[in-house]
Design a binder for these strands. Structure first.
Lengths: 187, 187
DNA sequence: GCCTGATGTGTACGGTTGTTCCTATGAGCA
DNA sequence: TGCTCATAGGAACAACCGTACACATCAGGC
C-alpha cells in the first residue's frame, strides 16, 4: 500500500521549437540581467525547461550566446537595410538614419542594452567577435547604398558611439541633439 | 628525528601600503582580463598576497572594485582638467581636447579599456554608477571653463561615444578622423 | 502495432567563487 | 622590557558554475 515516494518526475512535454524558444529566452535574460548573469541555470529557469535541455540543444553556453546574438543582429540589421532600401536619395537616407537611431534603437531600451552587451562580450570572446564583424559589415553595406565608403565609415562609427553612449550614460542625449549632431557631421 | 611535516607557513611580511598596492593591482587585472575576471583570487595571485588579505582590507569585492575605479577616474580627470586650465581660450581648449582624446586616451590602450570596463560594470552595479557620475560631472566642469554648458554637454557625449567606439570597435577611427569629427561638431 | 532514435528529464561531478574564521606574528607603544 | 592590537596567513564553507551522463518517453517511419 505504502505509496513508494515516487520521484514525481515532471510529465514529459512535447515541445517542438524549443530550440528557438531557448534562443529567444536567452536574449531576454541578457537584456534584463546582462551576459554575466546569463547562465545555463538562469536561462533554464526563465524558459521553464530542465537544465539538461540546454546542453542537449547547444553544445556549450558560448554557442548558445552566439546563436542568441546572431538572431538579434539579424533582426536589427534587416530592419536597417529595409530603411536604406526605401530611401530614394541621400537626403532621405540621412533622415531615415536619424529615424533609425532615435526611433528604432533609442526607442527600444532593450535593443540598446543588447547591442552593448554584445559589444562588450565580443571584446573578450572571439566567438562573439565574428557576430559583431558581420553586423558592422552589413550596416556599412546598407549605408553605402547612398553614401561614399569614407563617409559611411565615419557615420557608422558615430552611430556606434551614439548607441553606446545612449545605453550607458546616466544622462543620454535626446533625439534632437542626436539629429543635430548627425546632420552637422554628414549633412 | 622524523621532521614533523611543518606546514611551511610563509614568513610574515611587513607590508605597509599593501592596501594601496591592492588597489593598483586590481586596476592591472581589470585592464588585462576584464572586470569579470577580477576575482579575489586572481587579484591576490597578481599581488602575491594571501586570499584573506583582500577581505581584510576591503569589506567586499565590490568595494575593492569601486576603490580601484575611483583611483583611475581621479587620475584621468585630473589630467584632463590640467589641460583645460592650461588652455588660454576656446580654440586652444578644443585643440587640447583633441590632444587629450587622441593622445592621452587613445594612445593608452590601458586607459581606454579601463574606461569601458567601468562604463559597463556601472551599468549593472549601483556602487560603480556613482563613480561614473562623478567622472562625468568633473569632465563637464572642466569643459565649461571654455564652452557654454550646452556645447559642453554635447561634446562630452561625443567624447564618451568616441572612447567607447575606439575601445570596442574592431575597426576604430584614427586620430585624424576624430579630430575632424570633433572640430566639425564644436569648432 | 512495434521499433527506434530524437528529444526530454533529473542528477551528479569537479571546479571556482565570495566570504568567514581562527591562528600567528611583530611593530609600536607603555 | 613586555603587551597588545592591527595586520598577515591559511583553511574551510556553502553556493554556484558548466558540463556529462544515465535514464524515460514518445512521435514518426516501418
Amino acid at each position: 500500500m505504502s505509496a513508494a515516494p515516487v520521484p514525481a518526475r515532471r510529465a514529459r512535454r512535447h515541445d517542438p521549437g524549443r530550440r528557438d524558444r531557448l534562443v529567444a529566452t536567452t536574449l531576454d535574460v541578457i537584456a534584463e540581467q546582462g551576459v554575466a548573469a546569463a547562465t545555463h541555470r538562469a536561462i533554464a529557469r526563465a524558459a521553464d525547461v530542465p537544465l539538461g535541455s540546454l546542453t542537449y540543444h547547444f553544445d556549450s553556453l558560448t554557442e548558445l550566446l552566439a546563436a542568441a546574438f546572431t538572431r538579434h543582429v539579424d533582426t536589427v540589421a534587416e530592419r536597417f537595410d529595409e530603411r536604406m532600401r526605401a530611401a530614394p536619395d541621400r537626403t532621405a537616407a540621412l533622415g531615415a538614419l536619424v529615424e533609425h537611431l532615435t526611433g528604432d534603437l533609442l526607442g527600444s531600451h532593450r535593443d540598446l542594452v543588447l547591442a552593448v552587451e554584445l559589444y562588450v562580450a565580443a571584446a573578450r570572446n572571439p566567438a562573439l567577435r565574428a557576430v559583431t564583424q558581420e553586423w558592422m559589415s552589413r550596416s556599412r553595406r546598407s549605408l553605402e547604398r547612398h553614401l561614399d565608403p569614407g563617409t559611411a565609415r565615419e557615420v557608422d562609427a558615430l552611430v556606434e558611439g551614439l548607441v553606446l553612449h545612449s545605453a550607458l550614460s546616466t544622462d543620454p542625449m535626446d533625439a534632437d541633439q542626436i539629429r543635430s549632431a548627425l546632420l552637422r557631421l554628414a549633412g
